[in-house]
Design a binder for these strands. Structure first.
Lengths: 136, 136
DNA sequence: CGGCATCCTTCATGATACTG
DNA sequence: CAGTATCATGAAGGATGCCG
């Protein structure tokens, strides 16, 4: 990511297609796809093992059928997830990470673990921020 | 994160407040805050150096004044970003990462770098997926 | 079972205007 | 400059029904 990530100052061809700070950059869209509310959780669930649609739906509390299907389609289209239909009636569809997906997921899991570990600090920060705004 | 990340099977007290798969878990909300479209970019920009409001606005192409202000408020409330007012007229406000924020950002930068690096693969995946769906 | 199509509600976001 | 307030709208999301 040009400066922010690499620190390298030189302008490369890469930057034209891979600078998230740029409005119309494809990488920004791709990033949003994987960090989406439900996509993030779906990828995390698939990190454990392949899952069927219904399994994912039950695993990810609060996701609707519609949003899960939509998220999985986007992830499949971007090449992070593979969708495999095993039979037609009744349908048996299994989702699994692609190689790219398997390489991506550790980054997401690391982020999730970090945030979960810092939750006490986050809640403390919120409490003190709210206290200032609403001084009883 | 209970199973998905740690792999540990034991149920700890942590899980009650830190399982992103659970609907009402605070960690899911906190995660959404840092992975939000504009929050992610704001944190990345602040990883380089402290920025003023207007600087951030120009740096993050396409963000509206309203969304940036809102994102920064959320990040400040969760304790990732510190907001410092230096003068009143004209206003001079500087945003910088807190210690927690500085610890968080490498995870985000790693994710961004990874996605940017894989853009060719992503675009190839999209092209082939679209080809199948629309066979001319 | 695993979707897709449809309808409808809620929310997030952007544009604009105003203030300290 | 750095916001806040208001309004309008398009997108996100949920509920339902149908089909392979």
């Amino acid at each position: 990511m040009s400066e922010a990530a690499g620190g390298a100052g030189e302008q490369t061809v890469e930057e034209l297609v891979a600078d998230v700070f740029r409005r119309a950059c494809a990488s920004r869209e791709a990033l949003e796809h994987v960090t989406g509310k439900w996509s993030l959780l779906a990828l995390s669930a698939l990190a454990e093992s392949p899952h069927r649609f219904g399994e994912l739906r039950r695993r990810i509390e609060g996701v609707s059928e519609r949003m899960l299907a939509q998220s999985l389609q986007t992830l499949e289209r971007d090449g992070w997830v593979h969708r495999e239909v095993r039979s037609a009636i009744p349908p048996h569809v299994e989702y699994r990470l692609t190689e790219d997906g398997a390489a991506l997921v550790p980054h997401l899991l690391g982020l999730i673990s970090f945030v979960e570990a810092r939750m006490p600090a986050v809640q403390a920060a919120r409490a003190s921020a709210d206290e200032v705004r609403r001084p009883r």
